[in-house]
Design a protein around this nucleic acid. Sequence first.
DNA 1: TGCAGTAACTATACGCCGTGAAGTTTCACT
DNA 2: AGTGAAACTTCACGGCGTATAGTTACTGCA
Lengths: 245, 245
Amino acid sequence: MTLYCVHVTGSGSRGRRERLRAETTAEIKSVALALMATGGPDAITLRAIAREMGMTANAIYGYFATRDDLVTALIRDVYGALADVVDAAWEAAPPDDPAARIRAWSDAFRGWALANPEGFRLVYGDPVAGYQAPEGGAAPDAARRVCLGVTALAAAAWPHTEHLHRDSRFEWSDFDPGLLDKVRPAFPALPPAGVALALRLWARLHGLVSLEVYGHLRTQTGSPQKLYQEELDQVVRALGIPERT
Amino acid sequence: MTLYCVHVTGSGSRGRRERLRAETTAEIKSVALALMATGGPDAITLRAIAREMGMTANAIYGYFATRDDLVTALIRDVYGALADVVDAAWEAAPPDDPAARIRAWSDAFRGWALANPEGFRLVYGDPVAGYQAPEGGAAPDAARRVCLGVTALAAAAWPHTEHLHRDSRFEWSDFDPGLLDKVRPAFPALPPAGVALALRLWARLHGLVSLEVYGHLRTQTGSPQKLYQEELDQVVRALGIPERT
DNA sequence: TGCAGTAACTATACGCCGTGAAGTTTCACT
DNA sequence: AGTGAAACTTCACGGCGTATAGTTACTGCA
């Protein structure tokens, strides 16, 4: 009993330590995200976070070696949330209707960006002053998930659109091996031209959304939503996908 | 003679004052751009500029009321330079070959962005920490020029592509009146759907270029150039423009 | 139960930053 | 020669990231 208790206490204590630590880490990140939501990515300062938590700025160094590390962790989380959202939208759309799935994914992408503009800037823009992403990018996993997501779009469209990409000059060696490790097993039928199509598709959506998030569309049109829908119409049409009615 | 001399001296002096002032203003901006080119937009600090010029940081306040004003002026200049480059590329391409003109404009756009990544970030991203663009955007003129440029692309393609945009639901009221003031006189034959096409075209190019500039393509493909060219191929093809050989 | 070790946190300091207020120099013009 | 303004400096404030050293609290073992 004693031993058991000691053991439990021991592991429980170690667990407690770790749990407290994890909780504090989570609180730091959550406070940082709250600050970002209200004041933009630049509001993420160690001192402001510490102030909010009733701590000293230096206390945070016990959890993140540097401010950039914290930002990297935030990017990872936020990027992951984005990946969750678009994945879920894809899954929720009817599997046998490529056009619907593409629209669902794309709408979820834009919807998330407009709902979390600061998050979008954090992930795809210059996060905060002087931030240097670690080699390989800040959130390779989430980036790969999103990339895999657009590749799913391309793969779903591929049977209808293959004949339009016969003159593609892309080869496997044009892509990052890490990307192909994920893509080729998931979509064995997709040739290099299909992966290139995926990247171009991604960029096409990214272009409109990022112009909108950064306010460059606002001074041109009051109907960015309409613009996005028309772009999706053209995407689906250009891919040669039959639309269900 | 005396009177003449006095007059000359007077106006010459006033001119001298103004000239010196203009020169200092230009030097501040040029030093700022140099700092940006080497250390990124975040390296644009009043103190660093002043250090470089052998002055005090506060001396700059005689020329720009605030740091954001300086940044706004820089954005204006840089955006203007971009507009010059793409306009020149457009003009240099054969007027009777829409595909060539579109490719020339687009290549110039990407080329400028890759040659001036910091400038691209300054114009299209979060310029520097805490910067707030003035209402109406930082460089409305240059933005309009670029916008007018893409509209020229759309207008050149319009005769070939009109039939693909009959189902557009855009109306004149969907666009900013200031944009239309420029666009409608310049391209009287272009309907609302054509202006929407221009914006979508712009976004399509912007998407690939901005992903590349911000390093999000680098982790996926080693051939961004090839990707861009294939996208242009698809753009031209989707617009229904006949390619010259 | 008491003690050692360690994790968590604070205190202080340094050099950056933008910016405001006040003082000083320079110089054109009457 | 004197006046007024423009250009510039000095000093100061608060905020930032972060390095170093010191303090507190709690865990785990004897």
